[in-house]
C-alpha cells in the first residue's frame, strides 16, 4: 500500500469535522462535558493512525477505518442532536461527553458487574459443554440409543430455557445458582444435539480408518470422533452462547443485585439514562469481545479444514 492509500481517507476528515462542530455554541443549559468526548475521539484517532501504519492487508485496513468512521459519524450526529441543537429530550438523550464521563466515573462498578455476569456465564456454559460433549459422543456412538436420544434431546431442547427460571428459583437457593442452572440448560441441549449429529454424520470410512488402527474405545471417542464432529459441536456452542447472554441479562434485570442487566435496569428505574446508555454500550462491547474470542478459538481448533 502507498502512503496515500494508508493515510488519505475520509475517516480523518470526519475526525476534523467532529473537532470543528465543538466550536458551535451549546444550546443545552446543563454541563455537556464535551472535553471527555473530544479526548476519546483524539485517542481513537491516534490509534487509527498507528494501526494504519502497521496493518498489512488493505482489506483489513478498509474494514478498520470503516468502523472508526461509523463511530465518528455517530458521535457527530449525536453531538449535533443533543448539545448543539437540542433536538432530543436531554434527560433521555445525554450528550456523548456526559456518557464518557459517566463511564470513567463508574469504571470500577462496571468492571465488577462485567465480572459478575461473565463469571455466571462461564460457569454454566463451560459446565454444560464439559457434560454435553462426552455424553453426546457416547450417545451418538451407540447408534441405537442415539436415535431415541435424538428425539428426547430435540423435545427437551425445544423448551425455551427461560421457562425454567421459576422452577429454578423454587429449586435453588441463590440468584447465582439459578442463573448458572438456566445457562447450563440453555447450552446443554444445543451442544448435546450438535455433538450427537456430528458423531452420527461422521463418514464410515473415517471410522473404518480408525478401526483398522485397532484404537481402543477411549481413543475412538476422544481422538477420532471428537475432532471429526468438532464443527457441529461448535454450532451448538455458538447457539448456547447467544442464548446464554439473552437469558442472563434478562434474568439480571428481574432478580439480581449485580451484573450488567442489573446495572441497566437499576439506573433506568432511577431515571438515570446516562448510566443506562453506558450499560447498553458495555453490554455490546462485552458480547462483541466474547464472540471475537470464541471465533478465534473456533478458527484455531478447525485450522485443519480446507
Amino acid at each position: 500500500m502507498t502512503l496515500k492509500q494508508r493515510y488519505l481517507r475520509i475517516v480523518h476528515a470526519l475526525f476534523i469535522v467532529f473537532l470543528l462542530i465543538q466550536f458551535l455554541p451549546n444550546q443545552l443549559t446543563t454541563e455537556t462535558y464535551a472535553g471527555y468526548a473530544v479526548w476519546f475521539v483524539v485517542g481513537v484517532e491516534i490509534l487509527t493512525l498507528l494501526v494504519s501504519g502497521m496493518i498489512k492487508k488493505s482489506v483489513s485496513l478498509n474494514l478498520f477505518v470503516d468502523i472508526v468512521g461509523f463511530v465518528y459519524g455517530l458521535l457527530i450526529v449525536w453531538t449535533l442532536a443533543t448539545a448543539k441543537f437540542n433536538l432530543l429530550k436531554p434527560a433521555l438523550f445525554p450528550p456523548p461527553g456526559k456518557v464518557f464521563r459517566q463511564f470513567i466515573c463508574d469504571y470500577d462498578k462496571i468492571l465488577v458487574n462485567i465480572q459478575s455476569s461473565i463469571g455466571i456465564i462461564l460457569q454454566g456454559y463451560l459446565l454444560a459443554i464439559a457434560v454435553a460433549v462426552p455424553l453426546g459422543l457416547f450417545l451418538g456412538w451407540s447408534a441405537r440409543l442415539g436415535s431415541a436420544a435424538t428425539y428426547i434431546s430435540k423435545f427437551l431442547g425445544a423448551i425455551p430455557p427461560i421457562v425454567y427460571i421459576p422452577y429454578g428459583i423454587a429449586l435453588l437457593p441463590t440468584f447465582r445458582s439459578v442463573s448458572v442452572f438456566v445457562i447450563f440448560l440453555a447450552t446443554f441441549w444445543p451442544v448435546l444435539a450438535g455433538t450427537m449429529s456430528g458423531v452420527m454424520n461422521i463418514e464410515k470410512k473415517t471410522i473404518d480408518s480408525a478401526k483398522v488402527l485397532n484404537v481402543n474405545r477411549f481413543t475412538m471417542l476422544f481422538s477420532i470422533m471428537l475432532p471429526a464432529s468438532l464443527q457441529q459441536i461448535f454450532i451448538g456452542c455458538n447457539q448456547g452462547l447467544t442464548v446464554s447472554f439473552v437469558l442472563l441479562t434478562s434474568a439480571e434485570m428481574i432478580g439480581a443485585q449485580s451484573g450488567l442487566g442489573y446495572y441497566i435496569k437499576n439506573y433506568s428505574d432511577f431515571g438515570d439514562y446516562t448510566r443506562t446508555i453506558v450499560g447498553l454500550i458495555v453490554v455490546g462491547i462485552v458480547i462483541v469481545a466474547i464472540s471475537f474470542i470464541f471465533n478465534r478459538i473456533q478458527k484455531f481448533l478447525l485450522r485443519w479444514k480446507a
Binding site: 473415517t206 480408518s209 471429526a228
Partner: peptide
C-alpha cells in the same frame, strides 16, 4: 481388527 495388520485405503486413510 488387529495390531498385526497395517492398512492403506484408496481414500480417507488419514485423519484430516
Amino acid at each position: 481388527t488387529g495390531a498385526d495388520r497395517g492398512v492403506v485405503f484408496q481414500h480417507y486413510s488419514l485423519f484430516p
